[in-house]
Simulated assay, not measured.
Amino acid sequence: MNTLKTTQCGETVTVLKLHGEGPIKRRIMDMGITKGASIFVRKVAPLGDPIEVTVRGYELSLRKNDANMIEVE
């Protein structure tokens, strides 16, 4: 299973599924990260946290724990 956490800088991926439940999953979905959304990984911080991505035309920073819940292809 590939997750957003394992995606390399400069890659564009498509969301397959969101793992997790409750408020965390809701928050991720509210940021526009839903099934079928295209995500471009812009930067990864030196220690790997946070990950900076572009989704639906705007930029987001995600923690590694959140990125690990997003299954991509």
Rank of each mutant, 00 (worst) to 15 (best):
Q8M: 12
E52M: 11
V41F: 07
N68W: 09
H19P: 00
I39V: 15
E11A: 13
L62V: 06
F40D: 15
Q8T: 11
R27D: 02
S38H: 11
L18I: 14
V53G: 02
C9A: 07
V53L: 05
D49P: 01
K5M: 07
E59T: 10
Y58W: 05
P50Q: 06
M69W: 03
K43P: 00
G20Y: 06
I70E: 03
K5H: 04
D66T: 11
E11Y: 06
D66K: 04
G10M: 13
G48H: 11
E71G: 07
R42H: 15
E21K: 07
R63P: 05
G48T: 09
N2K: 15
V44W: 04
M31K: 08
R26I: 00
P23W: 10
R63A: 03
L18A: 05
G22H: 01
P23Q: 08
E71A: 15
G22W: 01
P46C: 09
M1P: 12
A45P: 00
K43Q: 12
I33R: 00
M1S: 15
V41P: 12
M31S: 05
R42K: 15
G10W: 09
I51H: 08
L4N: 05
K25F: 00
T7M: 12
C9P: 09
R56V: 09
L60A: 04
L60T: 04
D30P: 00
L18V: 02
G32R: 02
N68T: 11
R27I: 02
M29Y: 07
L47R: 12
S38A: 10
P23Y: 10
I28M: 10
P46Y: 14
E73D: 12
S61M: 11
I24E: 06
T14L: 03
P23E: 11
T3A: 10
L4M: 03
C9W: 03
T6Y: 12
K35H: 03
F40Q: 15
N2I: 12
L47D: 14
K43S: 12
R63T: 12
E11H: 06
L62M: 10
N68P: 01
I24T: 08
D49A: 14
H19W: 01
